[in-house]
Design a protein around this nucleic acid. Structure first.
Lengths: 230, 230
DNA sequence: GCCACAACGAGAGCACTGCTCTTGCATTTT
DNA sequence: AAAATGCAAGAGCAGTGCTCTCGTTGTGGC
């Protein structure tokens, strides 16, 4: 006599299995994920899937959240390991960069799902904005720790209207940290996303073909220098 | 009596009109471009379009080339104008950044087409790699001019396997320029792509919402500093 | 224990897609 | 003038997302 009936448990299992099969299809076929194909793969009618996900977009949203959580967890592991081994702050940024890149190389379609062009007509629901910030939060954490340790170097003045805006961002991602630092951290995150996307989406073809890992490190060290990490 | 018959001219006009209509559809409906809808819009049967483009991917390829050329031309105009007005080299990089960003804001779906996640199953043909390099070539040109003018500052040593690779890239984009400079230029280009994609694809939502133009400038000045432009 | 009810799976069906093949017509070439 | 070629249209195939209906099956209240 379960607190929740058999039906609820089966439903949860089915939901999970649909997501698993969909993830497999995503890995092989890319973003043109077919609900019918998933249903076929599970031996049930396509209409039955709609008992679990209201639409294809809903299924995609579930996969998007999982992807955000997955890459976020990878980043958190990298930062924790780097901090534990006493790596320097610039090295921590490099390490999280490598972790994110390697996750993306292992799951290219999931990367495309979250950082590529949005699915046409798709509007990200509120549920995604939490998981979406996990990796940038890790970069902010590095910066916060570096600032607390007094290892962020001298910060140039920032001018322009976005100065006050950076304050709001700083409140969100690193309260108490100078806004320029957080802004530079956001820039590092964006640069990381750009570098990984460039590698995955083919912008590096016929240019940087050999040591792309080294090229990413080159870029992340530049980002660390821009932040002022020593 | 034309050297090329009437038929050839009509064919060229039709091809151009199909591309124009497809571009309009792309702007409104995003990347899920429907050949049938384009055909409907032109008042002809969908099968007739196949006389001009062997497949939907072929049509997309044509649009991709046009998009590369369009953003490349925008970058070239910006660099030429900046050089003509005697702007500093760092400012030139900022200006080409703004030009690319503004083009992307005006044509978001075209941007997604060329710098977003690749269409599933789509393999970029050789025809695209030429136009694809037009904007990075402009960045390389800025760096080449700055180097020739002796305004690139001291260059740190680079280590790692990709050092020799950067030499090849340098030969391709800026012969005679120190490889690290070209590598930093590639990094600036990738950072620019990442920043624009982040803005267009929603990564900046709920974070940097106000002065995104200023935020891009912030990033491009960081890239200029990394290159060593003064 | 029974029964109403809600959840569920299956199937048919609609409108749409990319793409192919055939058929008839117009144009160009021989 | 005749043959060859280019072109447009229509039917058709296989696939898609999604909706609706119709039996079935598990669940909670009496």
């Amino acid at each position: 006599m379960k607190a929740e009936g058999v039906r609820a448990r089966v439903r949860a299992e089915m939901t999970e299995e649909i997501k698993a099969v969909a993830r497999r299809h995503l890995a092989s076929d890319g973003a043109n994920l077919s609900l019918r194909a998933v249903a076929r793969d599970m031996g049930m009618a396509s209409s039955a899937v709609y008992r679990y996900f209201a639409s294809r977009d809903d299924l995609l949203t579930a996969l998007i959240i999982e992807a955000y959580d997955s890459v976020g967890a990878a980043a958190e592991r990298a930062v924790a390991a780097a901090a534990g081994s006493g790596a320097g702050f610039a090295d921590r940024l490099v390490l999280v960069g490598h972790a994110v890149r390697e996750w993306a190389l292992a799951e290219p379609h999931q990367w495309a799902l979250i950082y590529g062009s949005p699915v046409p007509g798709y509007q990200a629901p509120q549920d995604t904005i939490g998981p979406a910030t996990r990796v940038v939060l890790q970069i902010a954490a590095i910066i916060r720790d570096a600032y607390a340790a007094g290892r962020t170097g001298p910060q140039p003045e920032i001018a322009g209207r976005y100065a006050e805006e950076l304050e709001a961002v700083a409140d969100q991602f690193g309260p108490g940290v100078p806004p320029r630092l957080i802004g530079a951290g956001m820039a590092a995150f964006i640069q990381l996303c750009g570098a990984v996307s460039a590698e995955l989406f083919g912008q590096l073809n016929n240019s940087v073909d050999e040591d792309r890992r080294g090229f990413l490190e080159f870029q992340m060290r530049g980002a660390a220098a821009f932040i002022g990490l020593t």
